[in-house]
């Protein structure tokens, strides 16, 4: 049984359709990359999984349980955490309060405030600062730590390298490696293909709301991938 099973997922913004029947299976412990250009529907896909958009009934199952149509807070408690695009930290909360709030759902698991600080020592030093006063990389660490505190079965990361210096991106992805090492399933959505393919067991390429290509990074040539990516 796969951890996450998506069948025929569609999504709409008003009258315009953003996703046209996405199918996806993610096994427990697997890391999946979703790549694609701007507007391909990657973020829409993640938002649908999290319950921020209304997906069709029965289109999404988590551990065999239908979750499509549940409110976002219940999906979070069921074991899906999102590191949202643009980080979306709570500006009136301190670093520690932001991270701590990730555990609001009360799921138990390996991740605690201490483990998060062990992974991101910089955050411990700045734990009482206002979260949005931190540097971009540190804010991204807060967002990841906050999502981990939910002890999710599935961690969704939306564009976590966007706007960060290459050195910082490397640090962030090192943390993703250790999260994967913990046995958590991870989905990374990226425009940066190389970075995403490095950590992923499998990848899906989105184009105009459809899966244009899927496979394992070693088995598909870069030329085929960029063909699917740019739609040429």
């Amino acid at each position: 049984m796969s951890l996450l099973s998506v069948r025929g997922l569609t999504a709409f913004y008003g009258d315009s359709q953003a996703l046209f029947g996405i199918d996806m299976e993610i096994a427990a412990g697997e890391t999946v990359a979703i790549i694609g250009s701007n507007g391909a529907g990657k973020s829409t896909f993640l938002r649908s999984i999290c319950g921020l958009l209304a997906p069709p009934a029965d289109s999404i199952h988590l551990n065999g349980r239908p979750i499509a149509g549940l409110p976002a807070n219940q999906i979070a408690r069921a074991g899906i955490a999102l590191v949202p695009e643009g980080r979306r930290l709570f500006p009136s909360l301190s670093v520690e309060e932001n991270i701590g709030l990730g555990g609001y759902g009360g799921r138990s698991g390996p991740w605690t405030l201490k483990r998060v600080y062990d992974m991101f020592p910089d955050l411990y030093i700045r734990r009482s600062h206002a979260a949005t006063k931190l540097s971009g990389g540190q804010q991204q660490m807060v967002a990841i730590g906050r999502a981990l505190m939910a002890n999710p079965d599935l961690l969704l990361c939306d564009e976590i390298s966007l706007g960060l210096a290459p050195r910082v991106v490397k640090d962030i992805y090192r943390s993703i490696d250790s999260i994967i090492g913990e046995g958590t399933s991870v989905v990374v959505v990226e425009q940066d293909i190389a970075q995403a393919l490095r950590v992923a067991d499998r990848f899906y390429c989105f184009q105009e709301g459809r899966v244009s290509l899927g496979g394992r990074p070693g088995e598909v040539s870069m030329a085929t991938i960029s063909g699917a990516y740019f739609g040429v």
């Binding site: 319950g51 807070n73 309060e97 609001y104």
Partner: peptide
Amino acid sequence: TTLGRAFRATSDDGETAQLMGIDT
């Protein structure tokens, strides 16, 4: 209090608060 933090988080950004498992 946790409830107080949930109040502030919901006020800042209700959508993201839901992602934390908060029933806004």
